[in-house]
Each structure stands twice: as C-alpha cells, then as structure tokens.
Design a protein around this nucleic acid. Sequence first.
DNA 1: AATCTCAGAATTGTTCAACAATTCTTCAAT
DNA 2: ATTGAAGAATTGTTGAACAATTCTGAGATT
Lengths: 247, 247
Amino acid sequence: MTSAESGLPGIPGPTAAGRSKASGTAGTALGSAARLRVATPSVADRVAAELRLQLAEGLLLPGARLTESTISEELGVSRNTIREAFAELAAERLVVRHPNRGVFVATLGPGEIHDVYTVRRFIEVSAIRGGGSPERVAAVRAAVEEGKAAAAADDEEALGSANQHFHGAIVALAESRRLNAIMAQVLAEMRLFFHKATVDAHFYRSYLDDNEKICKALEAGQLDRAGDLLLAYLNNSEEKQRGVHGD
Amino acid sequence: MTSAESGLPGIPGPTAAGRSKASGTAGTALGSAARLRVATPSVADRVAAELRLQLAEGLLLPGARLTESTISEELGVSRNTIREAFAELAAERLVVRHPNRGVFVATLGPGEIHDVYTVRRFIEVSAIRGGGSPERVAAVRAAVEEGKAAAAADDEEALGSANQHFHGAIVALAESRRLNAIMAQVLAEMRLFFHKATVDAHFYRSYLDDNEKICKALEAGQLDRAGDLLLAYLNNSEEKQRGVHGD
DNA sequence: AATCTCAGAATTGTTCAACAATTCTTCAAT
DNA sequence: ATTGAAGAATTGTTGAACAATTCTGAGATT
C-alpha cells in the first residue's frame, strides 16, 4: 500500500466530515447495519488500538519517533484525532511525550526494567498467594498447556504469548478489574523491550518447567510454595533480561 | 468571575493562536522570562490538572457531566484541547466516556470500592512487608505526625490529606515509580467518593491510633506485624466505606 | 578541521469553524 | 400515558491556520 486512505481496522469506511470529499453514499448502508447495538469505538480509540498493535508486534521499536503528520496520512485520520490517541498511549506509558519535540516509543532502561519487575513481584505474588476459584485456576492451567503446545509446534511467537497469558491468568486469580488492567499495561510495556533482543529458543522454553511447577503447586493448594516459586522465577527472569539488555 | 478568559493556573497569559483576538502584547515578556528551562506543561495538561483539582475538592461530584463547550468557555481553552485532557483523565479512571453522550465524573459502586481496596491491599501490604530505607520510614513517621497535628488543630481537611500521605508514604517504601503512580491514581479515585458522604470527626480520628501502631511496628522492623495491622486496617476501612455508601 | 551562528524548513501546540451523527427535549397526536 | 416526530443541543471528526519551538544545513569565524 502506498497512499492509504483508511488504514484502520474495524469499521471500514471513513464518514468524511469536513467540507471536502464528495462522500459517495456507497457503504453507508452496510456500516449502519453492522453497528448493531455495540457502542462503536471512536476513531481515536481505533488509532490507539492500531498503534498498540504495531507496538506489540515490534513494528515500532523503542525510541522510534511517531510523527503526527505521517501517521495522520498513513491512517487517513486528522491530526487532532491522532493527538487524542497519543494522549491515551502516553497515559499507558507506551509512548513518551517530549514537549515541542514529539512523541517517541517508550524506551526502558535498566532502572525501568527493574521497576516493571517490582510491580510484577508485588502483584503476581500477592495474587497467587491469595489463591482463586477453580475456574481461574483452570485458566492458569490452560495457559501452561498452551505454552507446551506452542513449544511442541516450535512456534516462538505463540510461546511468548502463552507465557504472557500465564502471568495474566495468575493476576486474574484476584478477580480485580483494576489489577487486571494494571497487569495488562505492564505486560504491554514488557513486549516493548522484548523485541529489542531476539530471544533464543531456550529463553522461553526454560520457563515452561517453572510454569508447570508453579501451576501444580497452585492446583495443590500450596499457595505459599507457589508464591515462592513465582518470586524466584521473576527474579531469575529479571536477571536474564538485565543480561540481555544494556548493563 | 463571569466570563473567564484564562482560568488556568500556572503560566498566566494565553498566547492566542487562531486568527482572532488582537492579542495584546502585555505579559509576554514575563511569560518567557519565567520559562527558565523547565519544560512548560501543555495547556491540555494544565486543563487536566485543573479538573483533577476540582475533582479532588469535591467541586465536581461523581456522576456530574462535563460538557465540552462549558469547560471550554470557562477555562478559555479550545474544545480540542479539552478533549485531549479528557483522554488523560479517562485513562486515569477519574472520568468515564459515554460515546456520543459525553464524559461524566466516575461513580464508584460497591463493587468498584471493593476493587479499589483490593488494589490497596495488594500494594500497600506488600510494600510494608518489604520494609524500606530509613529515609522512607521517616517519611511514614512524618505523615503520622502530620495527622496528629491536624487532629489537634481540628482540621478535617488536613486530617484527610495526612491520611493519604501516610498511605502514599507506605507505598513509597518500595521506591518504585510505577507503584507510586498506581497508588496516586487509586487515592485520587478514593477522593472521588469521599466527598459523597461527609465523614464525621470520629471517622478519620479513629485511624490515627492505627497509623501510629503500624508506623511503630515498621520502625521496630516488625514488618510482618506491620503488614497484618495494615491489612486489618484496610479491611476495616473498606467495611466502613461500604456502610456509608449504598451497599 | 572544528565550531559557532543564524536564517529557513519542519514539527508541534493550539485555536477556530464547519459539519455529520447521535442523543436529548419538547410538544403534539393518538 | 405512550408514542412519534420535528428541532435543539452535543459529541465526533475534519481541515486550515498560525505561533512557538526545534531541527537542519550553509557559511563565517577561529
């Protein structure tokens, strides 16, 4: 694609406000039909979602600059709307605003990585120590199996996802909307610097055993033990990350 | 004030872009002089800060609607900028966006209150169990004394602030930027529903003893005991809140 | 060659005005 | 009382404009 007109996923056609673009009526019928009763996310939200996706896929590397006009053209959305999306992403720390200089993909130095792991230690360990309903525990188990399957299929990408699902499921034990949101945000931040150093096969694979053990302890109701294992895992993981990245 | 031109604190004079408003040159000199080397926060940020303040002071009660045009006029800021500020506040959960209907001050039902306390239990208890440097412990002590002074002066407002400082100081033990930010956000949410029911003098005052005990345990290095006390305090506090608000 | 300076280009910050889409109001008709 | 249909108000989004700031690249200076 060279000069995209509407690069946004979801609802296809732009409705063309402004005073330009003769605004062909084609597609309008389908658009209103599809909008059954679900509140359509705003364009700004969709832009934010799209950028979040590109961030997660490593298409936008840390430190990269996000120029308003470029994205505006690329996505066929006005600059003002882009700015609204930026405000969202900045609040999520995925992106940093330098006044008068622009927004950049967040870069996580050694200190920041430690900070992220501190949050994870606090939340994940507390969550697992609190246990959870059988359904939630089953979800943790499912994530473990998902990881095994990915390993068997030699799918690195899926392995990484499974690992994140595992940790997400652990926090979900607490059944807290806010904790889930916080964890999701932290995991999104982590994806950011996962792309910097290409992780080798052994990197993720070594986690599988840990996850299995943690899950088993959880299922057996040995919550303190599960917490200790998880804590050790997180410490170990941080050390490895620290090794891979600067310092 | 009837038709405010620049209701924003901080940097006084609006620079008047657009094509209107003859833009008197008065005040410009002082403005640039004051902007020594500190990155001036954007207007959107200042709007968000102002709204955050009004929210904290109970000037904007939960459920209240924030109309773009009204705030735009009131603060002498364009609608687009207001929207950017809204995006910030929505990300902080202080405000909720109903598509095509507007933004409203967030309301916290019983479930939400429980959720907020869940986050606090996770973070605060973990933080105090981890202990902290002498300086950070001293900061906790300072918050306790601040509360005592406020009680002696019969200053309800200050008592509330001191209490929040106390809990903020506990999280600060962990020396984590992100945890501090999360806690600040949660406390901001709590301020939201504190204004609903006017808390009587005994409400806060009963906390003073708890805080003192917790602080003493912390200073004595009895971290587990401090954690237990804090946990009990939080459970008790949640129950009281639940009693005051619609159950 | 290294660096300083300064005009011009590019970009961000902010505003205004317009209009489509949606929601809210009002008021009559059944 | 319920329904329905103008009409008013508000949000969502755009495009254009311009001030302020930062970036860039030649020359000029040491």
